[in-house]
Design a protein around this nucleic acid. Sequence first.
DNA 1: TAGTTGATCGTCT
DNA 2: GACGATCAACTAA
Length: 194
Amino acid sequence: MPLKKLPRVFYLQPTLQVARNLLGKFLVRRLKGRLLVGKIVEVEAYRGSIDPASHAYRGKTKRNEVMFREGGHLYVYFTYGMHFCANVVTREQGIGEAVLLRAVEPVKGIDLMARNRRKGASSKELTNGPAKFCQAFGIARKENGTDLLGDAIFIVERNKIPRSRIGSSERVGINSAKEKKWRFFVKGNDWVSR
DNA sequence: TAGTTGATCGTCT
DNA sequence: GACGATCAACTAA
């Protein structure tokens, strides 16, 4: 299996393109000397200044500072008092856009994911939601700001998912900007949420 | 199976 | 002081 890290320029593309192109890629997490690998099957795009639903809509704050970094960083935020969600920052420095990773299909290190989630290894509940997958991959506040070109967390090249197999819909849990169909997922994949 | 609710806290107003 | 880019457990039917 080739393990070619996505180059910086991948993340500098327009956000909607990065979102679609991330589908099918492998997310790799080095944890406790082990390797966790998941295939990205569901994402949502958040586009800073033109997107009322985005954390970055009202400009840069202490919380969303990472979203304004150069593409290829990881923005992890805490919500609802108990959950973490991970975003891939896109575009060049100074632009607050990102792609939320919503679901992955476990590929490697499934036993460790199951232990992190305290679920059976065959459970679909392992990684089929943004907070679930973060827990499975051991991603929390410490991982906020991680450079995806480093060794702790990165994404490797895979064949592109054909456009015909990509579905799109409204984003989940959003009230404003509902008309924007910026959620993308692999059609028919069991690990896609909802 | 659909609908409701509790947990729980950082961030912004 | 209010409110989430949520989830899971619970209820009713």
